Amino acid sequence: MSNDVTPSAHHYGITVSDLDESLAFYRDILDLDVLAEFDVGGEAFAEGVGVAGASASFAHLDAGGARIELVEYDPEGDDRRGGTVNDTGATHLGLSVPDVEAFHESLPDDVETIADGPRTTESGTTILFVRDPDGNPVEILDA
């Protein structure tokens, strides 16, 4: 493929049911900076995403060089929250922190974790999976 058509990463998208609630989690709990908030609709958008009559509200956040896009669609799609990371097609967001234990201790009590605390894997990486308000898994790992 020639370099003028080789893709490069622009953002990582997560569909959410309530943008305000999810934005509060990603901004306030995960401490990501908000880059932009905007709405998109119209026929070209609906055709582009393949959802008749679709419009959406977006928030873009800075995750240290990676752009995270939160999207709330109207109309809403099927509810698939709470899956596990080994489901085919499953996605998760991975964010690094200097100290996973300290991050875990700083979480509010109402933030769901998949295990009851961080785990150090065979590779030596310390991980902790949390769930956002829609149940999407977010992996926190050591930097």
Rank of each mutant, 00 (worst) to 15 (best):
A24S: 15
P108A: 09
V40W: 07
S2K: 08
D28C: 05
L93Y: 13
M1Y: 12
E21T: 15
L30D: 14
V51W: 09
T113I: 02
T6A: 10
P133A: 04
G13H: 01
E72P: 06
G94T: 03
G42K: 06
L32Q: 04
P118A: 00
L19R: 00
A102S: 09
E72W: 09
A90G: 08
T120Y: 12
I29Y: 08
P7G: 04
H60C: 01
P137Q: 04
S123K: 03
L32N: 04
R27P: 07
N136H: 15
H11N: 14
I29C: 10
E105G: 02
V97R: 09
T125G: 00
N136C: 05
E43F: 09
V130W: 13
A24H: 14
T120V: 09
S123I: 02
V71S: 07
S17K: 07
T120C: 03
A36S: 13
R67H: 10
A54Q: 05
D87F: 14
P7N: 10
V138F: 08
L23R: 12
D134Y: 06
L93F: 15
L23S: 07
E37G: 01
L95C: 01
G42L: 11
V97Q: 07
F58L: 11
G42Y: 13
V71A: 09
E43G: 04
V138P: 02
F25I: 06
T15Q: 11
N86Y: 15
G83W: 15
L32R: 01
L32K: 00
T121G: 00
D79H: 11
D20W: 03
S2L: 04
H92A: 01
Y73S: 04
F129N: 01
D78A: 11
R67D: 15
E43S: 14
G135N: 08
T15N: 12
T88L: 13
I68F: 10
L30M: 12
V40Q: 12
E76L: 11
V51D: 08
P118N: 06
F129S: 01
F25M: 01
F58I: 05
T120H: 10
A54T: 05
T88Q: 09
R131E: 13
R119M: 14
S22E: 10
A102W: 07
S8D: 11
A63L: 11
D132S: 08
S96E: 13
P133Q: 04
D62K: 02
P75V: 02
S2V: 03
V5A: 08
R81T: 13
R80T: 07
P118Q: 02
E69R: 00
M1I: 05
D99V: 00
A52F: 12
V34P: 03
Y26F: 15
L95W: 08
A54E: 09
V71H: 03
A52T: 14
E43L: 08
T88N: 06
D79T: 05
I14C: 05
A56R: 06
F45L: 07
T88M: 09
A36E: 14
G83M: 04
D28T: 08
D132M: 04
L30K: 11
I140V: 14
S22D: 15
D31I: 01
G135F: 12
A24W: 14
I114L: 15
N136L: 07
L32D: 08
A9D: 06
R80Q: 08
D31G: 11
T125Q: 14
D28P: 07
R80P: 01
T113C: 07
R27Y: 11
I127E: 15
